[in-house]
């Protein structure tokens, strides 16, 4: 059984169909790329899967269970974690407290246990000086903290929404190997939204392409990138 499956997932905002009839699956140990031009519905898709938004129609199945209308915090507890594209680090909390939240509320750990597991996660991400305010963090550190926050939930499925955005080449390379290592070590099913195609090529075995909310192509990046429909979606009719 696939870890995460969507069936004909659709989200309408009044007249706009942001996600249109998307069916896909994601399996444990797999890193899937989710690409598409701006406004294609990638983030909305992650919102639907993680429960931040509820679908207009269609289904989200997690380990065979229908979670289409399960509230976000319950999906987090069940094992679906995600990062956010627009990050709002919790400024009134330290780095370690930010990460602890997931351990406390998703895994039901005591503050003491949560601190310990959060320290472990931060160490594996090489995120140091955990007593700091988040205001002093660099972009790389903020992105790492976002991932640490998601991992603290103890997830089986992890969606990364543009965690490489704003990083330089070195940092991006560092992040790619880190994400790979984490996914392998924890046997995660990972979905990656990214605009940098180099990252997608390096990181993912398979990609799905969204355009105007519809899934227009699926397969390994090398194939998908040659697909005329994908090229047209990215470059417009002129290509």
């Amino acid at each position: 059984m696939k870890t995460l499956v969507t069936e004909h997932l659709t989200k309408r905002f009044l007249g706009l169909v942001a996600v249109n009839d998307v069916s896909f699956s994601l399996d444990a140990g797999e890193i899937l790329g989710i690409i598409g031009p701006n406004g294609a519905g990638k983030t909305t898709f992650i919102h639907l899967v993680s429960g931040i938004l509820m679908p207009s129609s269609g289904k989200v199945l997690y380990k065979g269970r229908d979670v289409s209308y399960t509230p976000a915090h319950e999906r987090a507890r069940a094992g679906i974690a995600r990062t956010f594209q627009l990050i709002h680090p919790l400024e009134n909390l330290t780095v370690i407290e930010n990460v602890m939240i997931g351990a406390v509320f998703s895994r039901g750990q005591s503050l003491k246990e949560a601190r310990k597991s959060a320290e472990g996660i931060c160490e594996s991400l090489r995120l140091g000086d955990l007593g700091r305010d988040t205001a002093s963090l660099s972009i790389l550190e903020i992105k790492k903290m976002e991932i640490a926050r998601a991992l603290a939930n103890g997830p089986e499925v992890l969606f990364l929404d543009e965690v490489m955005a704003g990083l330089n080449t070195d940092e991006t390379r560092q992040m790619i190997s880190m994400v790979k290592a984490i996914a392998k070590e924890r046997g995660l099913a990972v979905g990656v939204v990214e605009h940098v195609m180099g990252v997608i090529r390096e990181l993912t075995e398979r990609v799905i392409v969204l355009e105007s909310g519809e899934l227009i192509a699926e397969g390994p990046y090398s194939e998908v990138s040659k697909n005329p429909r994908v090229i047209e979606a990215y470059l417009g009719g002129a290509a």
Binding site: G51, F84, H88, P89, I101, R107
Partner: peptide, 21 residues
């Protein structure tokens, strides 16, 4: 403390960390 501060900062993020707002 963690729950209330998380809610104050960003409800969406708090929810996806498992906080029942």
């Amino acid at each position: 403390h963690l729950a209330l501060t998380a809610i104050r900062n960003d409800e969406t993020s708090a929810r996806s960390s498992g906080v029942d707002i």
